Structures are given as C-alpha cells and as structure tokens.
Measured scan of single mutants.
Amino acid sequence: IRCIGVSNRDFVEGMSGGTWVDVVLEHGGCVTVMAQDKPTVDIELVTTTVSNMAEVRSYCYEASISDMASDSRCPTQGEAYLDKQSDTQYVCKRTLVDRGWGNGCGLFGKGSLVTCAKFTCSKKMTGKSIQPENLEYRIMLSVHGSQHSGMIVNDTGYETDENRAKVEVTPNSPRAEATLGGFGSLGLDCEPRTGLDFSDLYYLTMNNKHWLVHKEWFHDIPLPWHAGADTGTPHWNNKEALVEFKDAHAKRQTVVVLGSQEGAVHTALAGALEAEMDGAKGKLFSGHLKCRLKMDKLRLKGVSYSLCTAAFTFTKVPAETLHGTVTVEVQYAGTDGPCKIPVQMAVDMQTLTPVGRLITANPVITESTENSKMMLELDPPFGDSYIVIGVGDKKITHHWHRSGSTIGKAFEATVRGAKRMAVLGDTAWDFGSVGGVFNSLGKGIHQIFGAAFKSLFGGMSWFSQILIGTLLVWLGLNTKNGSISLTCLALGGVMIFLSTAVSA
C-alpha cells in the first residue's frame, strides 16, 4: 500500500470489461488503480535517471590570480610587451599612462603600459546536455494484498515479495511487465516523455548541487567559461569578468580578483528545477510519464477462499488518510488461513446495510499462523458509518465519521480527471477507425466523469442509474429551450454510458 502517505494521489477506475487503462505517473504523486474483478494496485514513479550526459560548457565562479607582471614604455618608444601576453592562462590589459620627467621619461606624453596576471579557477559549475534516449524511469508497484503497516513504502525485498514489484522503462524499451506472483502480471506500455523539453534544458552542477536550467539563461551567464570537458589546462574565455584592473600608474597597475560568485548564482537559480546525482547518473524529480496498463493477466487472489471465522482485533486505531479513506490494521487469532476477511461498512448496526467501498479488493489472510496481521483500506461514505470486521458474535466494529460532501468530492474528481486527460493529450485517442474513435470517446468520458459518477451514484443499482439517464434524455427531447435540451441530452447520455461502463 504505497499511496496512503502521498498527498498527491489519483484514483483511476477501469471500465467494466476493459483490459487496459491509461494513467499519468508523476514525481511526488501516486496512482491507485481499481477495476472490477482485479486486485487494487498502487503505482508510483520513484526516480527518473539520466546517463551519458555530455559537458557543454563550464563557468568559473571563484578564481585566484598570481605571478603579476607589468612592462611600460616612454612616449615614442613603441608598445610595451610581455611574453605572458601569448599565454592563455594569463589575463592581460594594455593601456596608456601619462609619462614625463617625473617618472623617468625625457618627453612628456602618453606611454604604453601592459599588465598580466595568471588566472586560476578555484571553483566552477558545469552544464551538461541531456539526450531523451538516455532517460530511465523506475516504477514501483504494490498490490493491496496481505501486507501490514511495516511494509508500507518499503522498497527492500521486492524481489521475493509477490505484493510488490519494480520495473524500469526507457525510450528504447518502453514496454515492461511486472510479475506479482499469485496476482498474475501487469503489463506497462509507457510513452517516455517527461513533459520537459530537454532540447531547451541543461543539467547544471555547482558545488555538489544540481538544477535543470534553460539553455539561453545558461549561455548568457557573465562569467569566465570554457567549452567542452575539462582537459586539465582549460582555456578560459572572458577571464576579465572576475578580474579587475585598478587605476594605472606610470610603471605598474594593481590587479585584484573578485570574490566568489556562488551567492549571486544561487539567487539567479531561484525557482529552477532541482535535481540530484546518483553516482555518474543524474536524478530528476520533475515531469511525468504516461503509461497504458494492460490488466488482462491480472487476477484476484483468494476468490475461492472461505470466510475467516475466528476473532479479529484492531492492532491500531483506524486512521484517516490524506485522501479521506480509512486504513485499518487487524490481527487474526485463527489458524484456518488462508481465508477471506469479512469486512464491510454499514450505516447502522441493526440492518448492516453496506455503504462505501473497499479500496483493498478481496482482502485475505494468507498465513495459517496465529496472530497474522493484515492492513486494508476503505472508502467510507460522508457522515457517520460503522466499520464491521468478522462474522457472528466475534465481529468487531468501529464508529467512523467522514466530513465533507459527495458533491465536493465529485467536483474534485472531475477536475482531476480533466487534468489527466489534458496530460494524456492525443495519445488517449485513436482515429484509425470508426470503432477506435468511439472507443476513445468512451475512454475520455470515463477518465473525466467516472470518479464523479461513482461518488454521486455508486450506491444505486445499474438499472436505477439507466432509468435516471433515460429520464434526462426524455426531458431533453421534450424541452423547447435549446440549451436546457442539449444539457439534459448530454447528461442523460453520459449517465447511461457510465452506468453500463463503470464497474460497481
């Protein structure tokens, strides 16, 4: 259960009878995928790494000078000259100064003066180019299975845990398959586009800190620079940016070097996208990844198990997540596992009318040892309800109150669905055939309105939902006002479609 501690969480529900669903994975976010007769899966884009970055340009932001020398000439005696002028490691300046009897010249006039100092770069920052084909995306998957609280967001041991898996995709191999043991396998067909235009970005490294910066900004930095990788004795261009020549006297000129420019660069980098280094690879934390999940090989585990009949206890007080759902960790005293956990939410304890829904599909106890633990997640209705676990006299209950409203949740879900469709863009549509167009249209309606429909009408039977949709269509056909007619027709059509397409 990876997503319960992530604030940016998206719930995606598969269409009834569908074998695939489109998701948008982004750094700092987590996606929970639910479908009829399929286990619930949490998917998170953990890291995006980039390798084989080529150094484009380096800037010196802290330097020192040494070996200063000057040469001067009297008027009419030609130009002052130093051998160091031809050495690229030196920074030199030529000027004219007033000369006369007082400073060793027989004539009054302008004399030539040249001053040089050896330039040494102490600290530099480097910009590297990123090729999209060198990106690698690491995705962690977790099935809502027989897990306890100690396994949440624990990325170790996934090789031997059938509840978890790690997959890596690249532009050259965008397809992967996550093996989930008894739950089958989940196929991923990803489109490795981060949403960032790397043709316009460089990877900047300064003092063990890293950013993504725009090329134009990078090339306009007014500091000494050299092109390409460091060859040991780089040729620094624009050395004068960190060196200041003071007022010249008759035979000498003082040279000083400016202080470190790291603070000024940090100020200019305010708002830039931060990154990290992992050995020789860069780690990015921006952008998104679009994936199509193929769920035809994914299956529920323990459908044929019998119900657990022994007593359950709450190991922890049920807690609310950031998303309005409830996490419950229970301990089973029996030894008759594997068995299914009898769990439901009810409005009252007399009729036990089921409300809400299970995020953890078909929760089971897989071990036959005593005191096995299991964590599950529920989506309670707004208002008061009861969490009921167990059967008969051994069942345990917990009162729950959820604040908020169904309308607010439906609106929030619609906005999130619209954002998801905007990110998917043209990849969500198939114009290759008439059937493809209608299929894409259905998927689009489901992406945007599916979660809201589930919130508003999830407790009704599909037949009642179709009746309401048919009534809206009838009202649309018999209303003389054009805008009201079109609105009723659209709402009725969407409702009829979703009542037959969205899983219960």
Rank of each mutant, 00 (worst) to 15 (best):
I1S: 00
I4C: 09
I4P: 02
S7N: 14
N8P: 00
F11Y: 11
S16W: 04
G17L: 01
G18Y: 01
T19F: 08
W20Q: 04
V21D: 02
D22L: 01
V24T: 03
V24G: 07
E26A: 03
H27M: 13
V33Q: 04
K38C: 09
V41P: 00
D42F: 08
D42C: 06
D42I: 05
E44L: 05
L45V: 08
L45P: 02
V46S: 10
N52G: 15
A54M: 10
Y59N: 10
Y59H: 09
Y61W: 09
A63W: 12
A63H: 08
M68F: 03
M68G: 00
M68E: 01
A69R: 14
C74G: 07
P75E: 09
P75T: 03
T76K: 03
T76N: 03
T76A: 15
T76M: 08
T76Q: 06
Q77H: 07
Q77T: 01
A80D: 01
L82V: 03
D83R: 00
D83P: 14
Q85R: 07
S86T: 09
D87M: 11
T88I: 14
Q89H: 10
K93L: 01
R94H: 06
G102V: 03
N103D: 11
N103Q: 04
G104E: 05
G106Q: 01
V114N: 05
K118H: 02
T120M: 15
K124H: 15
E133L: 03
L135K: 02
E136V: 09
I139H: 03
S142C: 03
V143F: 06
G145K: 08
H148L: 10
S149V: 14
V153T: 10
E159D: 15
D161H: 12
E162G: 15
N163R: 00
R164I: 08
E168M: 04
T170W: 08
S173N: 06
R175M: 12
A176C: 12
A176D: 07
L180E: 07
L180R: 03
G181M: 09
S185V: 09
L186P: 01
C190F: 12
E191P: 05
T194L: 05
D197A: 04
F198S: 08
Y202D: 07
T205V: 14
M206N: 05
N207C: 05
W211V: 05
W211I: 08
V213C: 08
W217T: 04
W217D: 10
I221K: 07
G228T: 04
G232L: 14
G232K: 07
P234H: 15
P234V: 15
H235W: 06
H235P: 01
N237S: 08
K239C: 06
E240C: 01
A241I: 12
E244V: 03
E244H: 06
E244Y: 01
A248L: 01
Q253P: 01
T254D: 03
V257C: 14
L258S: 04
L258V: 04
S260D: 10
Q261I: 10
Q261M: 12
Q261C: 12
A268M: 13
A268C: 10
L269M: 12
A270H: 13
E274T: 15
A275W: 03
M277Y: 04
A280L: 13
K281H: 03
L284Y: 05
F285K: 05
S286M: 06
G287T: 15
H288T: 02
K290R: 15
R292I: 02
D296R: 01
L298C: 03
R299V: 03
V303R: 06
T309C: 06
T313E: 02
T313K: 01
F314K: 02
T315K: 01
T315G: 04
P318I: 06
A319I: 02
L322F: 14
H323C: 13
T325Q: 09
T325K: 10
T327Y: 03
E329C: 10
Y332C: 10
Y332E: 05
A333W: 03
G334I: 06
G334D: 06
P338W: 10
C339V: 02
K340N: 06
P342H: 07
V343T: 02
A346P: 00
A346C: 04
A346N: 03
V347S: 00
D348W: 10
M349A: 14
M349S: 14
Q350E: 05
Q350Y: 14
L352K: 11
V355T: 10
G356Q: 04
R357G: 09
A361Y: 12
N362L: 01
V364M: 14
V364K: 00
S368V: 12
E370N: 07
K373W: 00
L376M: 09
L376S: 09
P380Q: 01
P381H: 05
F382Y: 09
F382R: 03
D384I: 13
I387G: 02
V388N: 09
D393F: 08
K394I: 13
K395F: 07
H401I: 11
H401F: 13
S403N: 09
S405D: 06
G408K: 12
G408I: 05
K409D: 02
K409L: 03
T414R: 01
T414P: 02
R416W: 10
K419R: 15
A422L: 15
L424S: 02
G425N: 06
G425W: 01
A428R: 01
G432N: 14
V434T: 01
G436L: 00
S440L: 10
L441Y: 12
G442R: 14
G442D: 05
I445T: 12
I448E: 12
I448C: 10
I448P: 01
I448Q: 08
G450P: 08
G450Q: 11
M460G: 03
W462L: 11
L467I: 14
I468C: 12
I468L: 14
I468T: 13
I468Q: 04
G469P: 06
L475S: 08
G482L: 14
S483W: 06
I484K: 12
T487D: 11
M495H: 13
I496Q: 07
I496G: 00
F497T: 07
V502D: 13
